[in-house]
């Protein structure tokens, strides 16, 4: 018990006194500075000789890997673009060919059509000419008939008026009137 009290008293005294400020105890300075320089030397050696070259090589290697990967990706992208343009080219070719086929077919049809139209036109022209001829014949026939009727009528009219008309005069008169 007494020992405890003594040690507590010692501790209290030690606390009162305190270590002061160990930072200002010049007697420990050489020791600290010596070990500091040793530590810095060892750290510098470890860093400059082993750690930093290793890390920088790892970083450079990673950078290289990333660059080459990006280059590969770029190449693949170019390939994909080339494939796409080839596809587009093929598509455009096919479309152009289809259009050419359509145009050719249309031309062929046009030619057939033109020929058929020409045949039909010719037929129509022939029919028209025939009809015209028939109409002309009919018209001529009609004019002759009118001449005969007019002659007869004129003869009858002249006869009824008590005159005798010779055929020649009658004909000349009727033709003159018909012309006029």
């Amino acid at each position: 018990m007494s020992v405890d009290t003594k040690s507590v008293a010692d501790a209290a005294e030690a606390y009162e006194k305190g270590p002061g400020m160990p930072q200002l105890d010049i007697s420990t300075f050489p020791n600290q500075i010596f070990w500091l320089l040793v530590t810095l030397g060892v750290m510098y050696f470890v860093l400059a000789r082993i750690a930093l070259p290793r890390i920088s090589s790892v970083l450079a290697e990673r950078q290289g890997t990333i660059t080459s990967d990006i280059a590969a990706a770029e190449e693949l992208k170019l390939k994909a673009a080339a494939a796409e343009s080839a596809y587009n080219q093929a598509l455009a070719d096919a479309r152009a060919e289809a259009q050419a086929i359509v145009a050719r077919t249309r031309d062929e049809i046009q030619v057939d059509l033109d020929a058929a139209i020409a045949v039909a036109d010719a037929e129509i022209a022939a029919k028209a000419a025939e009809s015209e001829k028939a109409i002309a014949e009919i018209r001529d026939g009609a004019v002759d008939a009118v001449k005969v009727v007019a002659k007869d009528t004129a003869k009858a009219v002249v006869a009824s008026m008590g005159f005798e008309a010779d055929a020649k005069t009658l004909t000349a008169a009727v033709s003159a009137r018909l012309k006029g």
């Binding site: 030690a14 002061g20 160990p22 930072q23 020791n31």
Partner: peptide, 29 residues
Amino acid sequence: GLAFHPMAQFEITPLFGDGDISWYTPTNV
């Protein structure tokens, strides 16, 4: 015990024994 001093943690003590601290003594530094 628990009655420690706030500045005691900065004290420099030899690692082995209780001798004087010369420039080459291995200490807690």
